[in-house]
Write a protein that binds this DNA or RNA. Structure first.
Lengths: 203, 203
DNA sequence: CAAAATTAATGAACAGTGTTTATTAAAAAT
DNA sequence: ATTTTTAATAAACACTGTTCATTAATTTTG
């Protein structure tokens, strides 16, 4: 049965070869701008070959979506070490914002694009995303226990914070901040973040 | 010079014919799923004709983007009649949410898609959008004057509120709420909105 | 080891996309 | 009536995702 094993390993290697290549192209062009033919050319195989390893373009999308969350968790690796939950929450927000700024293509696929969420199976394979989210909710809960946040349903509070963060991030990423002149935009964003954190903090 | 006038009128009629048709198709298919050939077929002209009236697909996009904001303002026509600014603000939020729910294709083009904001000229032609936004900022300012909101930079507060509203709306529209079971999702959204409104309200 | 069976890779095609251009048909001006 | 201007189009270009019959390589069997 050693042949079958090697076969399977080779299949896996090919999959990662395709994904790595798709990944590289995707990072500097954006997903919609990367075609199957582009990927095929990069790995020096024919376009049809890719369909032996992935059902369709969406499945590649899906795989990259998962990888983006892995990368996001790596990006936030320092967070659990922050003992004070409110400090951690604030840092989490800053990191979220920083991630969006530094890796807009990732942010796009994780939260903005509709494609990777069309299928239903994507919940099962959202392990890394679920991890990030539950860590976030846990931090909110701890903030309540330590009296930094008022006692509410912590899931509701978490959703509210995330909504705000995601809202401002996607307005920026999608260029919907033109009503604020370029020079003051960053200032206003910063002020807004501080205001929000102040408003939800228990007084 | 009566010929030139008629010519111009006909040109304008053709433009609106194309736009109306594009609009109809767009509403039930979404912009990316509507092709120039689809539009051409609907108005019974050749695809090339459309390029005599619009530079490219993005220009059609742009026109629909404007129309969406006109429609949005119509949708909110009852708002200015609400005298109490905080009541108005709350209603504005509810209407924003309702708009997203009832007209996701519009919401998509207005705030989510990247295409219509690629060019730089789109600021000048954003009259209806600017109108909606300044009315919103004005309401926030009034809320401060009447003591419903703490005295802060009203533009910063407005951005914060909008970010929250846009955040939750786009999470919903883009199917990023799967961590909350279907049954309780609506409940949680409602609770979040109430929580947010309570937190920003002056105490 | 040779023949048969399985597997992997591909070229070519299909049906679609946005966009351009040379050509034709119609209308207006001379 | 003839020339000029304008409008509309067919056809093409260079792409896209995807499928499938054919070929080439590899593994299994006799």
């Amino acid at each position: 049965m050693t042949v079958k094993q090697r076969r399977e390993r080779e299949k896996e290697e090919m999959r990662t070869l395709i994904l790595d290549s798709a990944h590289k192209l995707f990072i500097d062009k954006g997903f919609d701008e990367v075609s199957i033919r582009n990927i095929a050319e990069a790995i020096e195989y024919s376009p049809a070959t890719i369909y032996l390893y992935f059902k369709d373009k969406n499945e590649i999308f899906h795989a990259l979506h998962q990888e983006a969350f892995r990368f996001y968790n790596q990006f936030n690796i320092e967070l659990p070490a922050i003992r004070d939950p409110f400090d951690r929450l604030v840092k989490m927000g800053e990191k979220y914002f920083e991630f969006m700024t530094l890796h807009p293509k990732y942010y796009n696929i994780m939260f903005l694009m509709e494609a990777p969420m069309r299928n239903d199976e994507c919940i099962d394979e959202w392990e890394e995303g679920a991890k990030a989210h539950s860590f976030f909710e846990q931090t909110v809960l701890e903030c309540m226990e330590k009296g930094y946040l008022a006692a509410d349903d912590h899931r509701v509070v978490a959703l509210t914070i995330w909504s705000y963060m995601h809202g401002i991030c996607s307005l920026i990423i999608r260029n919907r901040m033109k009503m604020y002149p370029e020079e003051i935009r960053e200032q206003i964003q910063k002020q807004s973040f501080e205001l929000f954190m102040n408003k939800i903090r228990k007084r």
